[in-house]
Write a protein that binds this DNA or RNA. Structure first.
Length: 591
RNA sequence: GGGGGUGUAGUUCAGUUGGUUAGAACGCCAGCCUGUCACGCUGGAGGUCGCGAGUUCGAGUCUCGUCACUCCCGCCA
């Protein structure tokens, strides 16, 4: 028996033809006489009919058939009578009258129905992922993921990029995320690290003369998980020589546009909007603003600094700031709602959330009494207050204010239903700070990574005022989600050394850790830069999925384990001996 | 490391102030049913109430601990 068609290949054009289908039993409807089976394959569903008059033997055999059995059937395509056409099915105008039935495999009763819109806990689904993946939704998602990768490859191939593989067994690098380590048997006591990204290799490929490289590649980071973070994830990684920011952004825009065209049939129009990091923080409080709605933050520090409201005035005098966000027309939010928002901003360490309801008869607010009429007027103008509005304020250090209000802005937009779920709004965020100060380590750290080039005009301050330096880095943000980021790299040894020094490394340390890079940089390194996209996040947004796990065939749980295989698991003593590893006693039998 | 949520039949859930035999729907099994496509009708099976302690005459219910899943903060160059 050989398959001749997919289920949804069949239509009225094939009436009278003999066909052979193979697939799974979606449902069986036994009428005592005639038996209907909905047969499902990758393409969809077709109804097959077992009728006692047509073929008694086959009809008898069909009694044993159950959900998810794997069948091969040979039969004749028949037009359904007019009053039995099912408009809800692609193949609803026909059915297959079966002449031969082979049960290719039986199946245990599935723990949940193989169909969309079922309500099943995710852990049940992850334990039975092979069944979960049969659902049309996941068939479509994985197909879209495939199409995305294909659209990326075809676009980059056309732009003369070369796909080159880089090692998975590589060197642990300081800074950045925690590494996944792999012990070396041949070199006992030594470890490889799985790459957090192919960053240094792709730079070495530029130095190696390939000029344009790309790779769709797994990366590994041993950090705590989130809805949009898995320990292994896929990057679309690329790097180009002899380019500046504009070249890379242009290629990236073309690539993303090609993906949307090929996968969703949507035309998105590059070039995308640009936003300076400083403006993003100022207006939206976050470096990944969702621009599908407006509701910008307003800095009112200068107005409240001299006011009688001590809480605000003191914060400003101590170098903090006060910002406001205007929830237009939300005057009727209840006290309970506001308490909820106060709790929400507390997550980001905001100590309080002041509010004003702008009523016809004046302000209703616990803080209204502290302001003079002039101050009220200034605030009203600055924030654009109108009757019906509800204004929120946070006063604190800039980091807290921006995080709290930036996230509150997103939260409010969700609650106020301001977000058009069908919109795809891209924005480039550029000119990130090069360094941030790590209070715990008491030193400067790279915001992006230590190979990012500083902005030419700021470079002179690298020793005197590192926090003033901006970088030649850029992130692509889609609907408030960072989907890609990159930078122009340092391509001169002297600059790279100065960077390492600024990060608090001495010569001995950076020679040991990055000597190979420094050597390569002085061997004729071309100016170069690149970008990497999170494939999983991109597909997640394309498919409208709430979690990255929904676009990964076999994802891990929040504790980074696999519910299907029960990985990770204990190693045998023999395995450990070979690697010269002893596992510390786990504190299980402590009294 | 921290905060929140969830955990009762195969699945989704209900379960009163702590009180007799823990229910419903879907699914499953059996019988009947020749045009269904959410097939129908009749009957049936199915439970370590996540796990462990404690309080109590008595715990699905209260307390403590613990585990798993999940959302978030920290973390993620």
């Amino acid at each position: 028996m050989r398959r001749t068609h997919n289920c949804t290949d069949l239509g009225t054009a094939l009436v009278g033809e003999e066909v052979t289908l193979m697939g799974w039993v979606q449902t069986r409807r036994d009428h005592g006489g005639v038996i209907f089976v909905d047969l499902r394959d990758r393409s969809g569903i077709a109804q097959v009919v077992f009728s006692p008059e047509e073929n008694t033997e086959v009809h008898d055999k069909a009694h044993a058939v159950r959900s998810e059995f794997v069948l091969g059937i040979r039969g004749t395509v028949a037009a359904r009578p007019d009053d039995m056409i099912n408009d809800k099915m692609i193949t609803g105008a026909i059915e297959i009258s079966v002449n031969e039935l082979r049960i290719l495999n039986r199946a245990t009763t599935p723990p949940f129905l193989v169909e969309d819109d079922i309500e099943v806990g995710e852990n049940i689904r992850l334990k039975n992922r092979h069944i979960d993946l049969r659902r049309p939704k996941y068939q479509k998602t994985m197909l879209n993921r495939h199409k995305t990768a294909q659209a990326i490859r075809s676009f980059l191939n056309d732009q003369a990029f070369i796909d080159i593989e880089t090692p998975f067994l590589t060197k642990s690098t300081p800074e950045g995320a925690r590494d996944y380590l792999v012990p070396s048997r041949v070199n006992q006591g030594q470890f490889f690290a799985l790459p957090q990204s192919p960053q240094l290799f792709k730079q070495l490929l530029m130095i190696g003369g390939f000029e344009r490289y790309y790779q769709i590649v797994k990366c590994f980071r041993d950090e705590d998980l989130r809805a949009d973070r898995q320990p292994e994830f896929t990057q679309i990684d690329m790097e180009m020589s002899f380019v500046g920011e504009e070249d890379i952004m242009g290629i990236a825009e073309g690539m993303v546009a090609n993906v949307f065209k090929e996968v969703l049939g949507k035309d998105i129009a590059p070039p995308f909007e640009r936003l300076l990091y400083s403006d993003a923080m100022d207006r939206y409080g976050l470096d990944k603003p969702d621009l599908r709605f407006d509701m910008q933050l307003k800095d009112v520090s200068t107005i409240v600094e001299t006011s009688g409201f001590k809480v605000f005035a003191d914060v400003v005098k101590k170098g903090g700031m006060v910002k406001a966000v205007n929830a237009k027309g939300c005057m009727d939010f209840s006290r309970k709602d506001i308490d909820g928002f106060t709790k929400f901003v507390a997550i980001y360490r905001a100590k309080g959330l002041a509010w004003i309801k702008v009523r016809e008869e004046g302000w209703q607010s616990p803080i209204a009494k502290f302001f003079t009429d002039d101050e009220k007027k200034a605030l009203s103008e600055r924030i654009g207050m109108e009757v019906g509005d509800l204004i929120f304020f946070v006063a604190d250090q800039p980091k807290v204010v921006n995080e709290a209000l930036g996230n509150l802005r997103n939260h409010l937009a969700e609650k106020m239903d301001l977000i058009n779920k069908d919109e795809f709004r891209f924005v480039w965020v550029t000119h990130f700070p090069l360094f941030e100060y790590d209070e715990t380590a008491k030193r400067y750290q790279s915001l992006h990574h230590p190979f990012t080039a500083p902005l030419e005009e700021d470079y002179q301050y690298i020793e005197t005022d590192p926090l003033k330096l901006r970088s030649r880095a850029y992130d692509l943000v889609l609907n408030g989600c960072e989907i890609g980021g990159g930078s122009i790299r340092i391509h001169q040894r002297a600059v790279q050394e100065r960077m390492f020094k600024a990060l608090g490394m001495d010569r001995e340390e950076y020679e040991e850790k990055f000597g190979f890079l420094l050597n390569a940089l002085e061997s004729g390194a071309p100016p170069h830069g690149g970008i990497a996209f999170g494939l999983d996040r991109l597909v997640m947004i394309l498919c409208g999925m709430p979690s990255i796990r929904d676009v990964i065939a076999f994802p891990k749980t929040q504790k980074a384990s696999c519910m299907l295989t029960d990985a990770p698991s204990m190693a045998t003593t023999a395995q450990l001996d070979e690697l010269a590893i002893r596992v510390k006693k786990i504190e299980s039998d402590v009294e």
